[in-house]
Simulated assay, not measured.
Amino acid sequence: MLKILGRASSINVRKVLWACEELGAPFEQEAWGEGTKSPQVAEFKALNPNALMPVIQDDDFVLWESNAIIRYLANAYDGDWLYPQRAQARGLVDQWIDWQATELNTSWRYAFMSLVRHSPAHQDPRLLAAACKGWNYTMAILNHQLEKTDAFVAGKDFSLADIPIGLSVNRWYETPMDHPELPGVRAYYERLTKRKAYARWGRNGMP
């Protein structure tokens, strides 16, 4: 039985939960504490030396890093429709998954820590303004892509790339800041919401 270790409040854990639901992969979830705050920290570090969620156990196989996990799940649970085998189609999916992990994820870090986590170390007004501007800039890049496809991020079909991107779109809208009008992103947000798994793990009130 596939086991997912991590709390559903984590955006990276929700990637895995959403992917499992799309794939129809049965799983058990254990909501361990986050990272080094976990009372099972020594046991958890034996699974992931970074002490970060999520981790999966698929029988005797252990894997960490959320994007590696969702790729594995698509490969292991008949997810060719979600993560295509053809090199060019898969390349586009991987491109947007990696873009989310690097450019988009990096752009939101300061603003999210300031406005949602209320971190005392992230309250410099100038840095916050710059972070919000940078986050909106990367979202405009996404908007341009979505206006080209008029569907999903890697093309006309829903794919594995839409899982990290869709969760990121929800985080942007759920963060209390000025959001420029991005019609492609807004239409995409509504389109994803028609998927039951996204309504459960994505657009569910958690940033």
Rank of each mutant, 00 (worst) to 15 (best):
Q85I: 10
Q85D: 14
R86T: 10
R86N: 12
A87L: 13
Q88W: 04
Q88G: 08
Q88R: 15
Q88E: 15
A89L: 08
G91Q: 06
L92F: 15
L92Y: 12
L92A: 11
D94L: 02
Q95E: 15
W96S: 02
I97V: 14
I97E: 05
I97K: 02
D98K: 01
D98C: 04
D98I: 00
D98W: 01
D98A: 14
Q100E: 14
Q100L: 08
Q100C: 14
T102R: 05
L104Y: 03
L104N: 03
N105M: 03
T106M: 10
T106F: 10
T106V: 11
S107G: 05
S107R: 02
S107K: 00
R109Y: 10
R109H: 09
Y110N: 00
Y110R: 01
Y110L: 08
A111P: 02
M113H: 15
S114H: 03
S114C: 09
S114Y: 05
L115W: 05
V116F: 01
R117E: 11
R117G: 08
R117N: 13
R117W: 13
H118G: 07
H118E: 13
H118R: 13
S119N: 12
S119K: 08
S119G: 10
P120I: 06
P120Y: 02
P120Q: 04
A121L: 15
A121F: 15
H122D: 07
H122M: 09
H122W: 08
D124N: 11
D124K: 04
P125Y: 06
P125Q: 09
P125R: 02
R126M: 08
R126D: 13
L127T: 14
L128G: 10
L128D: 12
L128H: 03
L128C: 04
L128A: 06
A129W: 04
A130R: 05
C132R: 00
